[in-house]
C-alpha cells in the first residue's frame, strides 16, 4: 500500500495554468515579436537583435527610463517614510483602530482610471477645486497641461495619495505584531522614542517593509493608467513614463517589434532591480 497524495496537484494546477497563460505564453509572444519586423498582414521579417540595439542607442528610451526612475524613486522616498510615520502614529488599541484602518483603506479601493480622472478634474485651473484655488485664490500659475513642474507635482501627489495607505497598512501590521515586552524592556533600558523606533520597531518591520518597497517599486515602475488619464504623458514628453512610451510605440505607431524589445528590456530592468533590492534586504537574515 504505497500511495502518494495525488490530490495535491489539483490545488497547484490552477496556479500553474494561470502562470502559463498570464506570464509565459505572452512573454514568448513578446520574445517572438522582438526579433522580427512586421507590416501587418501576418508578414514577418527576421530582424535579430536590431530592435534591442536601436533601442539601447535611442535617446527617447533613456529619456523615458530616466523619467521613470525619477518618478519611482521620488514616490518611494515619500511614501515609505510617510507610510511608516502614519503607521506609528496610528493607535494600537481601542475603538479608533477600525476607524483608522477603514479610512486608510479607502484610497486603495478606488479604481486606477478613476483616480486619474478625479485628480484631472480636481486640478483643472478653471473648475477644479485645487486648480481654481491655486490659480485664482493664491495666484500661483498652475496648469498641468502647460507646466511640466505642475504636471510632475500632480502625478506624484496623486500617487502618494493613492498608495501611501498600502505602506501604512503593511507597516501597521508589522508594528502591532511586536510583543509588549519589547516596549517594556526598552522603557526599562531607558531607550528614547527614537531608539525604540530604530532598534525595535524598524527591525521588526523589516520584512513587511521589504514587501512594501517591492510592491511599490514594481507598481510604480509599471504605472500607466493614472498618469495617462491625468496628463497623457504631457506636456510634451514631460510625464511620458516607460509604460506610456511603450504604449505610444506599440499602439500609436504600431511598431510592434521595437515595442516588444522595449517590453523585454523593461521587464529585465524591473526584475533586476527587484532582485538586487530583495537580496540586499534579506542578506543578513538567518
Amino acid at each position: 500500500m504505497k500511495t502518494i497524495n495525488q490530490k495535491g496537484w489539483f490545488f497547484v494546477a490552477p496556479v500553474v495554468i494561470l502562470v502559463a497563460f498570464n506570464a509565459l505564453i505572452p512573454l514568448m509572444t513578446v520574445v517572438n515579436y522582438s526579433v522580427q519586423e512586421t507590416f501587418g498582414n501576418n508578414l514577418f521579417l527576421w530582424q535579430g537583435l536590431d530592435w534591442f540595439q536601436n533601442l539601447l542607442r535611442s535617446d527617447r528610451f533613456y529619456g523615458a527610463l530616466g523619467r521613470q526612475a525619477l518618478f519611482t524613486s521620488t514616490i518611494l522616498l515619500i511614501e515609505i517614510p510617510l507610510g511608516v510615520a502614519i503607521a506609528l502614529a496610528m493607535p494600537r488599541k481601542g475603538i479608533w483602530v477600525p476607524v483608522c484602518l477603514v479610512l486608510m483603506s479607502l484610497p486603495l479601493l478606488i479604481p486606477w482610471n478613476v483616480v486619474g480622472a478625479m485628480w484631472n478634474i480636481f486640478t483643472l485651473p478653471d473648475i477644479g477645486l485645487a486648480g481654481y484655488f491655486l490659480n485664482s485664490v493664491l495666484g500661483i500659475n498652475y496648469d498641468m497641461t502647460q507646466d511640466p513642474f505642475a504636471a510632475w507635482t500632480t502625478i506624484i501627489i496623486m500617487d502618494v495619495w493613492h498608495w501611501t495607505s498600502l505602506v501604512v497598512l503593511l507597516s501597521y501590521a508589522g508594528i502591532i505584531s511586536i510583543p509588549d515586552p519589547y516596549y517594556q524592556a526598552a522603557k526599562i533600558d531607558g531607550a528614547s522614542g527614537w531608539a525604540v523606533f530604530w532598534f525595535i520597531q524598524l527591525p521588526k518591520m523589516k520584512r513587511v517593509l521589504t514587501i512594501a518597497v517591492l510592491l511599490r517599486f514594481m507598481d510604480s515602475f509599471n504605472i500607466y493608467t493614472e498618469p495617462f488619464v491625468l496628463t497623457g504623458g504631457g506636456p510634451g514628453n514631460a510625464t511620458t513614463l516607460l509604460s506610456i512610451d511603450l504604449v505610444k510605440t506599440a499602439l500609436g505607431q504600431f511598431d510592434l517589434g521595437p515595442a516588444a524589445a522595449m517590453s523585454l528590456i523593461y521587464f529585465a530592468v524591473t526584475l533586476l532591480v527587484s532582485w538586487i533590492f530583495y537580496s540586499y534586504m534579506t542578506k543578513d537574515e538567518e
Binding site: P179, P181, Q184, A185, K187, I188, G190, I200, P203, K204
Partner: peptide, 17 residues
C-alpha cells in the same frame, strides 16, 4: 520604569536583534 531605575527580564527573551 525608567525613573524607578529597575530592570526586568521577561518570559521570552527580549533582545535588540
Amino acid at each position: 520604569p525608567a525613573e524607578r531605575n529597575i530592570a526586568q527580564v521577561f518570559q521570552f527573551p527580549v533582545i535588540y536583534d
